[in-house]
């Protein structure tokens, strides 16, 4: 092959290759010299020890070092109570007093079931699912003044809170959401605008199953019959008359619950919400229906 052919071939290669731009060039090899820490007489000058004196000549040992003894700070056996605290589930609190104030100011509608999405929408509650926040811990501050009759779903509740809500004829459920679902609940509009199908909610992890299947904590996976027994038991313990839900005028609202696989009230997994044309895309394909089956 002659040199002329080589030149032509390389030119044709150049034509088909992308144009040279700032995005695909790099420095010539050997044009940049990285500074190295010198170790010679003047190359490595002071090594951070300062100029003359104790800094250079004395040996300042690290804090707690006892020249070879077993140091004091290691001599005592240590129990790490907070080991792995940054991996644990956190539930930022919301008090009953704050909830009552939002209801008084019409920021949440108690004629509809309340969940974490409606509380975030009201502006009273905020949380960050990416910081291991797994939802609302409803606390008992203001349990004495609480007077609303509602159907609320939170992620964590104490016995006092459950009693305060059931005393006023309301219903409380504790439900688990995986972080992905919590992102959707925090900003549903943002999710609908992406045009993705609503996913399924995941089941709780093994260490949370016990809490969410327990009727005493009104877990969403507990047996409804056992929950009604636990309601009666709590009413007797705290000494109040339990509201008979069956005869209530808002019976349908109080009985509204989400499916364990459902994220939003009334919207099923697999649906795509089109906010622009105000229509819903529902899957008909067998494969999709079985994938999103509740």
């Amino acid at each position: 092959m002659g040199s002329r052919q080589i030149a032509e071939k390389s030119l044709s290669i150049l034509r088909s290759l992308p144009r040279i731009s700032l995005g695909n060039i790099r420095d010539n090899p050997g044009s940049k010299i990285t500074q190295k820490r010198g170790r010679g007489q003047h190359g490595g000058d002071k090594h951070g020890a300062g100029n003359k004196g104790g800094g250079q000549r004395q040996n300042y040992m690290r804090l707690g070092y006892e020249t070879g003894n077993n140091p004091f700070y290691l001599r005592v056996p240590h129990e790490n109570y907070y080991k792995g605290h940054h991996h644990r589930r956190q539930y930022p609190p919301l008090s009953l007093k704050e909830l009552q104030l939002t209801i008084d100011k019409n920021r949440v509608d108690i004629t509809k079931p309340i969940d974490i999405a409606s509380l975030v929408r009201s502006g009273v509650y905020n949380f960050n699912p990416d910081q291991k926040h797994y939802g609302i811990n409803l606390t008992d501050e203001g349990a004495d003044i609480f007077q609303a009759k509602l159907n609320i779903e939170v992620q964590w509740a104490s016995e006092e809170v459950i009693a305060a809500i059931e005393k006023n004829g309301g219903v409380i459920t504790t439900a688990y959401y995986d972080p992905h679902s919590l992102f959707l609940l925090k900003n549903p509009k943002k999710f609908f605008e992406t045009g993705q199908a609503i996913p399924r909610r995941m089941i709780p992890p093994s260490d949370a199953i016990e809490y969410y299947t327990n009727p005493e904590t009104r877990g969403y996976l507990a047996d409804p019959e056992q929950i009604s027994q636990a309601r009666l038991k709590l009413a007797q313990k705290y000494g109040y008359q339990l509201n008979n839900i069956q005869n209530d005028s808002i019976y349908n609202m109080l009985c509204e619950r989400k499916d364990p696989r459902q994220i939003f009230f009334g919207l099923e997994p697999g649906w795509v919400i089109n906010l622009k044309d105000e229509c819903i895309l529902k899957p008909k394909d067998e494969k999709l229906l079985s994938f999103y089956a509740i």
Partner: peptide, 15 residues
């Protein structure tokens, strides 16, 4: 995949 578009759905109240 096969799907259907539902306009003015009753579920829009939930949205």
């Amino acid at each position: 995949y096969d799907y259907e578009i539902i306009k003015n759905p009753p579920e829009w109240e939930y949205v």
